[in-house]
Design a protein around this nucleic acid. Structure first.
Length: 569
RNA sequence: UGGGGGAUGGUCUAAUGGUAAGACAGCGGACUCUGACUCCGCUUAUCGAGGUUCGAACCCUCGUCCCCCAGCCA
């Protein structure tokens, strides 16, 4: 990707973070800036991470400066290399390049250990033997000060010895921690002697069994930023309270670099959940078919759903960066997909819920090839030929025996245009004697209207899509809808968010009729099924010749609004 | 009720002492061989009360409401 304006159009005013960076560059505080995206490899990336990725890497591209990808892998009990791989893939797929700047916090374990010893020597850290419960009690509460640990005033030599023995595996998990020695009376709980290291006798996905003590986030993060010479360390609002601690580490250890932490509001989207913990529950509980289920707002799910990387980048740019907790409506994301796909997706005709049409006056056995444009607004995308014959399929929704007022489609005695085909008029309806279900309709066509226009200038109000029955390719199409029924599934603490799952988030239509050109669709190709929506061939389940389609998003439909329900797909 | 943040149409975002703007949503209309796209129009906002000022969304004071923090998670 070379066009950085695509990511942040020049016309858009700078967000507050970019303003700070511009000032720092202008004032000479920094000649070059360095940002970083620091995921923990304990799950797949989602749309919320995309916001952070676009921010950090976007700033990098705009300023021609590096943006590091650093895995914050300090908790081996939750982290796995499969997540490392998926994260790298997703960042690249989104269009970003970390170049040589791929790092792991675990790369710094030795330096982090040395710095911890340094803190001990400074009298700023000590080995504490309080249990986890005791530490919690000693920490105090929001309104009451904490109490100092009885181990707080050990000698430096004793602390050094104990810490080394922690490292050497002499002690049990949970029996000791290394703590910073700051202020048990601080109104900021993060400063009440936070834990720096804990004993975890767990194999790490990169360092194996080399370590049995692992550093905590706050300590690791600030030092890793300093080690890498990060200038602006961008994180979400909940870390605002941690900033004094972040700074304390850097100030106390007098690091060469002192990055500035700046916090921005995380992304909230309606009709979904964003927390990794909850997403994990959906995956592990089998509520979805995996991290990359097209209903998931993971990067891999969105990719499979048919969202392009540029659409996701556009979305992240559109929503902006601020400090106000905000909820973006899902329709904004959906609209971004439509906007992107409208430009690029070739148009095709597919009948999702087929209804047989027999054209009584069309010669039996005759086949014509109709010229259809691939994109009416972009003639350079060319055209294709679609076969037309006596028996066709049309959409069940496009026929009503007793049509309401503003229904422009087919009904008894009504005439409509078959797109790129002929005008047809319905002459009779065939029903199943037992169920009363309409099984087919009979029509006549006007041979003068070939291609879809009438020489006599007569107008029809409706144009519907169709597929020639003998030529149609039957195919499953997966209709995806929002995963949740409520705007904020998390809203009520007393109700499990899974209660709000949409039971109809996936509908498989297994007898859809594709126009023949779709037989050679490649996995991942995107199309507009005219009058229906944007669809793509599934990346995983599509075989060449036997495609499986996923609905990315519907087209806007103003008929559905006037009709109020009876027409809902 | 300790500390840290935040309040601009229904939802986001801008305006940084000088005409409150844009996007999405909604409503109405035009166009149309996609009830799509496109185009046009409309409704709707500065949390409240004071103050400073010729002039305040912006500065000051006092309130109100919302979010975050008591993991050996990140």
């Amino acid at each position: 990707m070379t066009d950085s304006t695509e990511i942040s159009p020049a016309a858009r005013p700078l967000d507050f973070i970019r303003q700070i960076i511009a000032e720092d560059l202008h004032s000479g505080k920094h000649q070059q800036i360095v940002t970083r995206f620091p995921p923990e490899p304990n799950g797949f990336l989602h749309i919320g991470h995309a916001k952070s990725i676009c921010l950090n890497f976007g700033i990098g591209m705009e300023n021609n400066s590096p943006c590091h990808l650093r895995f914050d892998d300090t908790n081996p009990s939750k982290e796995e290399s499969i997540y490392v791989e998926s994260i790298k893939k997703d960042v690249q797929w989104l269009g970003f390049d970390w170049g040589r700047n791929l790092f792991y916090a675990s790369d710094y374990f030795d330096r982090l250990y040395d710095s911890a010893c340094q803190l001990i020597k400074l009298g700023c850290a000590y080995v504490c033997e309080l249990s986890a419960e005791e530490i919690r009690t000693y920490r105090g509460t929001l309104t009451e000060p904490g109490k100092e640990s009885p181990y707080r005033d050990r000698t430096i030599a004793e602390n050094l010895d104990l810490f080394q023995r922690m490292k050497e595996g002499e002690f049990d998990e949970g029996s000791r921690v290394l703590r910073a020695r700051i202020d048990m009376n601080s109104p900021n709980l993060n400063l009440r002697d936070p834990v720096l290291y804990r004993i975890l006798k767990v194999t790490h996905h990169r360092t194996g069994d080399a370590w049995c003590i692992y550093p905590m986030y706050d300590y690791t993060h600030s030092l890793s930023d300093a080690i890498e010479g990060i200038t602006h360390s961008l994180c979400t609002l909940e870390f605002e309270d941690h900033r004094p601690l972040y700074n304390w580490f850097l100030d106390t250890l007098k690091t060469e670099y002192h990055p500035r932490q700046i916090e921005f509001a995380r992304l909230n989207l309606t009709y979904t959940v964003m927390s990794k913990r909850k997403i994990l529950q959906l995956v592990q509980g089998g509520y979805v078919e995996g991290w990359d289920d097209p209903r998931m707002l993971t990067i891999s799910g969105l990719r499979r759903r048919g969202y392009s990387a540029s659409a996701i980048r556009k979305f992240c740019s559109d929503i902006g960066i601020g400090k106000k907790e905000s909820w973006i409506d899902m329709s904004v994301l959906e609209n971004t997909a439509r906007e992107a796909l409208n430009e690029t997706a070739p148009r095709v005709m597919v009948v999702l819920n087929p209804l047989k049409v027999i054209i009584d006056n069309y010669p039996d056995g005759q086949i014509e090839e109709m010229e259809a444009q691939n994109h009416p607004q972009r003639p350079e995308m060319g055209s294709r030929r679609v076969p037309f014959s006596r028996e066709l399929y049309i959409e069940r929704d496009d026929f009503m025996e007793e049509p309401p007022k503003k229904f422009f489609r087919l009904g008894p005695e009504r005439e409509v245009r078959l797109r790129y085909g002929y005008f047809i008029r319905c002459v009779s309806v065939v029903k199943d004697a037992a169920t009363g279900e309409i099984t087919a309709i009979h029509c006549t066509y006007d041979p003068e209207t070939r291609g879809g226009s009438a020489p006599d200038g007569r107008k029809v109000k409706g144009t519907i899509h169709w597929v020639s029955a003998p030529h149609a390719i039957s195919c499953p199409v997966r209709i995806y809808d929002r995963l949740f029924l409520t705007e904020n599934p998390d809203a009520d603490r007393n109700v499990d968010f899974k209660e709000h799952l949409n039971p109809n988030s996936l509908t498989i239509l297994d007898n859809c009729m594709l126009e023949p050109s779709l037989g050679k669709a490649q996995a991942g190709e995107q199309f507009q099924f005219e009058r229906q929506g944007y669809f793509c061939t599934d990346l995983i389940d599509s075989q060449s010749g036997t495609p499986v389609f996923n609905r990315t998003v519907t087209l806007k439909d103003s008929w559905i609004k006037t009709d109020k329900g009876s027409h809902k797909p």
